[in-house]
């Protein structure tokens, strides 16, 4: 009976792994094998690494991909920073001082989940016309809508983190010792919800790197719109760049997980 269960378990794992790995391996295969000659080459990966100089040499074909890549990098940073600065203090404050507002905040944060991006763009069009006039037409201002898009996922991650600690007692203890709110946030709350913040950040990074619809419909250049354009002239590079973005996100997850872990698990409990 147990042997049968083990077999089923391995079959399930194998199917799931195949579901995830076959497309990725196909992408890798396509990125390494020249489509016409069938010759194995790492040229596409070399091009990804040197995309800056390739774009400089051939701006017509690769300029937008390079621009999109840079824009997405900036968007990732801006979105994560705004999300953390906006959500962590707000959610902490709601939990500590205005609990009656928590349902409302949750509803607002989860709302973007129910609105398709294509519908969102209809409303965002007029808003971004104003943004273009007040700020500029630069793609980096997409960070505002990206913060809205990541709200549901980031809220869930942070909410779980805050629920796992006795926020009220910790903050009151810190206050009684003389700490003010900024220090409480920085030295007490954030370190204790680090894993949750990292999770929220990763979700944000993944979402921003993969976002296409809004950027395309608002005529902005990000990584995905750049890949889309390049795919029409250089399919191998487009696929390689997509795979590289996925690997980057994966590596980022690993690095962030490493940072979110701490040395506190090294000593055994003695209580």
């Amino acid at each position: 009976m147990r042997r049968k269960q083990t077999t089923i378990r391995w079959i399930v794992i194998a199917v799931i792994m195949a579901f995830f790995l076959i497309p990725l391996l196909s992408m890798l295969y396509f990125s390494l094998r020249f489509p016409l000659s069938g010759k194995w080459t790492g040229q596409a990966w070399s091009n990804v690494i040197h995309i800056g100089s390739i774009a400089a040499a051939d701006p017509a074909d690769y300029g937008q991909l390079w621009t999109g890549l840079k824009n997405s990098a900036v968007l990732v940073v801006l979105t994560v920073v705004i999300m953390v600065v906006l959500l962590v203090p707000t959610m902490t404050w709601v939990r500590l001082r205005v609990k009656w507002l928590s349902r409302t905040v949750e509803f607002i944060c989860l709302l973007p989940l129910t609105i398709p991006a294509i519908v969102l763009v209809v409303g965002l069009g007029p808003v971004y016309r104003i943004v273009s006039n007040v700020l500029s037409t630069n793609t980096i201002w997409l960070c505002f809508v990206y913060v809205v898009l990541v709200l549901p996922f980031a809220y869930r991650a942070l909410d779980a983190g805050l629920a796992a600690i006795d926020l009220t007692t910790l903050s009151e203890a810190a206050r009684s010792l003389g700490a003010r709110w900024f220090r409480i946030m920085w030295q007490i709350v954030l370190p204790n919800i680090r894993s949750a913040v990292v999770s929220a950040c990763f979700i944000s990074v993944a979402l921003v790197l993969g976002e296409f619809t809004i950027a395309q419909l608002l005529a902005r250049d990000n990584l995905q719109t750049g890949i889309f354009l390049v795919s029409q002239s250089d399919g191998q590079l487009a696929v390689t760049m997509s795979l590289a973005a996925l690997i980057l996100a994966f590596v980022l997850l690993m690095v962030l997980s490493l940072f979110s872990g701490d040395g506190r698990r090294t000593k055994g409990a003695s209580a």
């Binding site: 600690i165 006795d166 007692t169 910790l170 009151e172 203890a173 810190a174 206050r175 009684s176 010792l177 003389g178 700490a179 003010r180 007490i188 370190p191 204790n192 680090r194 701490d262 506190r264």
Partner: peptide, 19 residues
């Protein structure tokens, strides 16, 4: 404000900073 009252407090719930 609390932070300036100069009072030490021990709470009912465990209040040590976990990190």
């Amino acid at each position: 404000p609390t932070s300036k009252r100069d009072m030490g407090m021990v709470f009912q719930a465990y209040s040590l900073f976990p990190h």
